[in-house]
């Protein structure tokens, strides 16, 4: 079932404006370059705590942030990309990872508990999946649009499923997203369960889809799902590096970043994309260098 083309819609990228496609790609570049710099800082010993990197998964948050604007965000431990995609400031996140008091959570949050009132992002406590019932409660209390992001492992927590059921019963404005990299640390989904989250969500009466991490495909579905909340989207993606840390066991099943660049080329946007990639890299490298020197 997992594949780079699962749920593909032919020529879907052509349904979006040039501006949307390039904005989405820029977000992917910011996240990817940020994470490679984080990896470098970790490997050189500047970061002395567990880190959870999003390399390979950046298309998910980048696409959602374009199709689902200004939600209240409840994410979990792998969240650098989400924070950055929704417009979180870069320097305070670098400082957080470098244990500085000027960090986004003054050093309390580390890599796994990023929060930002500015972008409406709430921190994660460390209990896997607890952000989902909390997100549902926030939607119940505020009646405002909420984004609740889980992984394929935390989706198995009983309280995740029961709170999704409650959101469906009360018709609460929550978009549930499962960033499904197919792994719980290294244990594959098929070893852990014989059921799918999309079927669970459908059984609750929600609109629900299961797709690959093609960012245009994600934007297409999220825009539709946002019209009838609560709803659910399961996105198959690849985690390039370890669950925690910077190691790599094998090549990812597919390289979405490379595929997206190819798609942009096919859209006639190769030149602009290369420029964005290069400028973003220089910009992020410079910020990291500056903060590491301080």
């Amino acid at each position: 079932m997992r594949s780079k083309s699962f749920g593909e819609i032919k020529n879907i990228s052509k349904h979006f404006t040039k501006k949307e496609s390039l904005e989405m790609f820029k977000k992917m570049c910011i996240s990817r370059n940020f994470e490679f710099n984080t990896k470098d800082a970790f490997d050189k010993g500047y970061i002395k705590m567990p880190i959870y990197l999003s390399v390979g998964e950046e298309s998910v948050s980048s696409a959602i942030s374009i199709a689902y604007k200004k939600p209240h965000i409840f994410a979990q431990h792998r969240c650098h990309d989400i924070y950055l995609a929704f417009g979180g400031e870069i320097v305070p996140l670098i400082d957080e990872l470098l244990h500085k008091p000027s960090g986004i959570a003054k050093g309390m949050g580390g890599s796994a508990s990023i929060h930002s009132p500015k972008i409406g992002m709430f921190g994660h406590s460390g209990l896997m999946g607890d952000q989902i019932p909390i997100a549902v409660g926030y939607a119940l209390g505020s009646k405002q649009k909420v984004l609740a992001i889980m992984g394929d492992a935390s989706a198995e927590e009983d309280y995740v499923i029961s709170s999704m059921g409650y959101a469906a019963s009360k018709k609460l404005p929550v978009l549930f997203v499962c960033t499904d990299n197919g792994l719980s640390i290294l244990t594959k989904v098929a070893v852990r369960r014989n059921w799918s989250m999309v079927n669970v969500a459908k059984a609750f009466g929600m609109d629900a889809v299961e797709i690959t991490d093609d960012p245009w495909l994600i934007m297409h579905h999220v825009k539709k799902l946002a019209k009838n909340l609560p709803s659910f989207i399961n996105i198959h993606t690849t985690r390039v590096l370890w669950h925690n840390g910077t190691g790599q066991d094998s090549e990812p099943e597919w390289d979405r970043f490379k595929i997206v660049k190819e798609d942009l080329k096919n859209l006639g946007l190769e030149k602009q994309a290369l420029k964005i990639e290069q400028e973003t890299k220089e910009f992020i490298d410079k910020l990291w260098k500056k903060q590491l020197k301080k």
Binding site: I134, V136, G137, Y138, A139, L140, S142
Partner: peptide
């Protein structure tokens, strides 16, 4: 968790 979310709201 839902009650805690309502408190955050």
């Amino acid at each position: 968790g839902i009650a805690v979310g309502a408190a955050l709201a």
